[in-house]
Design a protein around this nucleic acid. Structure first.
Lengths: 168, 168
DNA sequence: CTATAACTTGGAGTCGACTCCAAGTCAAGG
DNA sequence: CCTTGACTTGGAGTCGACTCCAAGTTATAG
């Protein structure tokens, strides 16, 4: 089984959720290495490459700019972590960032849960269409409802866009 | 103590990490409500408003576009969750998104940890400058090192930007 | 009375990340 | 042989989110 399956750019785009144009763009800016070509010049992708693209998609989803994604790929490529202490430092600091981002996100989840809870007992008379906040896909709702990080977003006032006409 | 403390736009920018320009910009696009003005026309901000801006910053940090942030502020503003079932749906689906984003991020953290571990025993001879991955700001490192979500990024191949000269 | 500093506004410019387009190549089908 | 379709390239255009600028106002300090 030396025959590793290969994919066209179209198939790759379908599998990764990243458009063909974008994949080519990533290659152009050298975020991705130049893909191998068939004799006719068409790009070919292997599982390896698809994984890389998936990693990019994953990091991107979290709001990381492409330039910050770059070092990740270098690391994942050669599996050569500690050789460049600079890179290791980079990794550590990114780890920090991500952890704090997770905390941010968790805060937002808590915020939503509170809002959803509020709504829950505030009505409980109307139709129950699709109720049930916490028993859905995630079985990992934290036991404590509010995260440690102060959660000050509560007394937020917005009402944006409706300042009495004088805005403009 | 009816005297609630107020802040200038400069102070607000300092407190939230969002620049004055950006705060004004948010007001312009009605992401933020029009801030009250002093007699001289200068904007004033109260704790409430600062919290809103902090919430925006928090959501932004997670990669959420401003247009998606908008509905969050509406909710946080009036504390009127269940009144608009559409909005509740919005909240739920965002909650889902965020949960999956957390999972993504956790995967990346795991990925980094593995890379860092690799490096750790691969060297362990050089200087220990700032070693110690897990005993820093976060005391909540998950017990299991790899998350449930397959973690396929491992066999990634990148080496971007060094395709033998022919690229471009 | 004037200069400085902290703001105001409207609008133009920038930058990252695509997204679209035109023109060309190649392989297979009718 | 001509068309169709899946690709190629280079480059232009778009869009979101700022970021910067110029001109004007107001308050305080010298």
């Amino acid at each position: 089984m030396k025959e590793e399956q290969i994919f066209s750019i179209k198939e790759t785009a379908e599998q990764t959720g990243i458009s063909e144009d974008t994949i080519r763009y990533y290659e152009k800016i050298a975020l991705l290495p130049r893909a191998d070509r068939k004799d006719n010049g068409h790009r070919v992708y292997r599982q390896e490459n698809i994984n890389t693209i998936r990693l990019i998609a994953c990091l991107k989803k979290t709001g990381m700019p492409l330039e910050e994604i770059r070092p990740f790929l270098v690391v994942s490529a050669d599996a050569d972590p500690a050789e460049y202490p600079e890179l290791v430092e980079h990794l550590r600091s990114h780890r920090e960032n991500i952890i704090s981002q997770i905390a941010s996100l968790q805060q937002v989840v808590d915020f939503i849960d509170i809002k959803l809870e509020e709504g829950r007992y505030q009505r409980d008379c109307s139709d129950e269409s699709q109720a049930g906040v916490s028993e859905k896909t995630m079985g990992e709702l934290k036991p404590k409802p509010v995260s440690t990080v102060e959660m000050s977003y509560f007394s937020v006032s917005a009402k944006a866009g409706n300042s009495s006409s004088s805005a403009r």
